[in-house]
């Protein structure tokens, strides 16, 4: 009986979605999207319009997202914090190939993540994606050796300072351009499709990338060690 109800509900949902699909994919742009598409390039000189929307037009939302991520990582670190005095089980060592590969690949991966978030206004991607790539470099080190010493002080300082930098850039916009996170009068807008262009956008995305990268790295480290102690207490 339960299964029949589930199948009927699914079929209804499928039919409804099939009807909705052409509406959800309109051929033209909406009013807001039209405005962004027409004025985005003159306003911000960013080659990637999505970045202009994420960091400038909807920059306040991005600040909120970064804060949510920070809060969730803090919560996880608080709940899963390291407890001393428990028996820590010895993980099996990774093989030579994995350890060497991790050492070899760490720097290129972090470099590529940095490229992603520094070029956020030129290519697809930006702070969140670049931060995730940087954190995956750290994850590779942790996979090769679970107790790889991470510079926790450096990570937490980077995280806090980039958060402060984001807010400071927003306040600078308030002071120079008239609104929070305004992209006027702080840095020159520059030429379209150059590395030093789009005003304050790449600076903010660099802060976001550093913050997300250090947060995710801390989260992965905390979770890996928490798993260990729970299993063997």
């Amino acid at each position: 009986m339960k299964q029949i109800v589930a199948v009927v509900a699914l079929a209804t949902l499928a039919i409804l979605l099939w009807q909705l699909a052409p509406i959800a994919m309109p051929s033209g742009l909406g009013v807001v999207a039209q405005h962004y598409a027409e004025h985005g390039v003159q306003d911000n000189r960013g080659a990637n319009l999505v970045t202009s929307v994420v960091v400038n037009y909807r920059g306040f939302d991005t600040l909120g997202e970064v804060t949510v991520l920070f809060l969730s990582v803090s919560g996880a670190a608080f709940v899963l914090r390291r407890r001393t005095g428990l028996e820590v089980h010895e993980p099996r060592r990774a093989s030579e190939i994995v350890r060497t590969g991790a050492r070899l690949l760490f720097a290129p991966i972090v470099l590529f993540g940095t490229y992603i978030f520094v070029h956020g206004h030129l290519t697809p991607g930006g702070g969140f994606q670049g931060g995730a790539v940087v954190a995956s470099g750290v994850l590779l080190l942790l996979l090769a050796n679970k107790d790889h010493p991470l510079p926790h002080g450096f990570l937490s300082w980077t995280e806090s300072l980039s958060g402060l930098g984001f807010v400071a850039a927003g306040l600078a916009g308030l002071w120079a351009g008239g609104s929070f996170l305004a992209n006027r009068g702080i840095l020159p807008l520059g030429t379209w499709n150059q590395l030093f262009s789009a005003g304050v956008i790449p600076v903010i995305y660099t802060f976001v990338g550093l913050k997300v990268g250090s947060e995710l790295a801390t989260l992965l480290d905390v979770m890996m060690h928490a798993a260990d102690e729970e299993v063997h207490q």
Binding site: A94, S95, I97, V98, G101, L105, P108
Partner: peptide
């Protein structure tokens, strides 16, 4: 180049 470097590592780790 990236595929050439990473894929042997992951498949080695998986097989082992």
């Amino acid at each position: 180049l990236f595929v050439l470097v990473t894929n042997p590592i992951s498949s080695h780790a998986l097989a082992r």
